[in-house]
Amino acid sequence: MTPASRIHPVERWLWPILATAVFLLLWHYAVLWSGTRIFPSPREVELGLSQLTHRGVLYRDIVDSLRRVAIGYLAAVGAGIPLGLLLGWYPAAEQTVNPAIQLLRPISPIAWIPVAILFFGVGDDAAIFLVFLGAFFPIVITCVDAVSNVPLIYRRAGSNFGLTAPQVLARVVFPAALPQILVGLRIALGIGWLVVVAGEMIAVNSGLGYLIIDSRNSGKRYDLVVGAMLLIGIIGLALDAVFRRLESIKPVRWGFRHES
């Protein structure tokens, strides 16, 4: 293996593109040689997706899915970070609510679907609630952990300069914990994107998850099923890439290992 630093810039793009091309070719010939009438070839997937694009359905589904993730995720960030910071700051409070958090955390958001529908009915709110649940616990738990990992020296320095407890939390503990919090936020966004697809299969009538289940149920359109799956993968990758860029901004860069 060549060390990452010695790879030519062109190669960084060339090999992944080549690998993807090989994958598509394998897929194409596997469909051709097996003689399957149900599983689509890459070309059929492309045709199916472009049909949907022309009818404007695809765009609407993508926007619906992204909107649900955005609302549910931002609510989880808005509630999870302050709660996590406070629980990390007051260990007694953390010990009090920790059993409840640990009990709720391993329950898959999918298991919440019936309860979500009971609370919110079939619609946007149920899906948003599921995204919120999926993202909330990882955010709270990484925040608690990140705060307890802040070196005592930083807190002492903060109080030495005359900061009050809330000021130490805002000006010392939060920025010191931010790199680790960002890692938690990134994982939580990934989970939110996983959950919205599952939620849309049951709780709503639009979005990429609904597109998958609807295409299967109405005439076994597996070209659209596979197309929606690929789109979910691509959008998930893009969301993660945006987050990775945040890790290199200066005030948090110290917390991450970079090649340079």
Binding site: I153, A157, V172, G255
Partner: peptide, 13 residues
């Protein structure tokens, strides 16, 4: 003011 070893410098500033 207490001066720690250089570990007391805030890395985010």
């Amino acid at each position: 003011i207490f001066v720690f070893q250089e570990r007391g410098v805030f890395p985010w500033l």
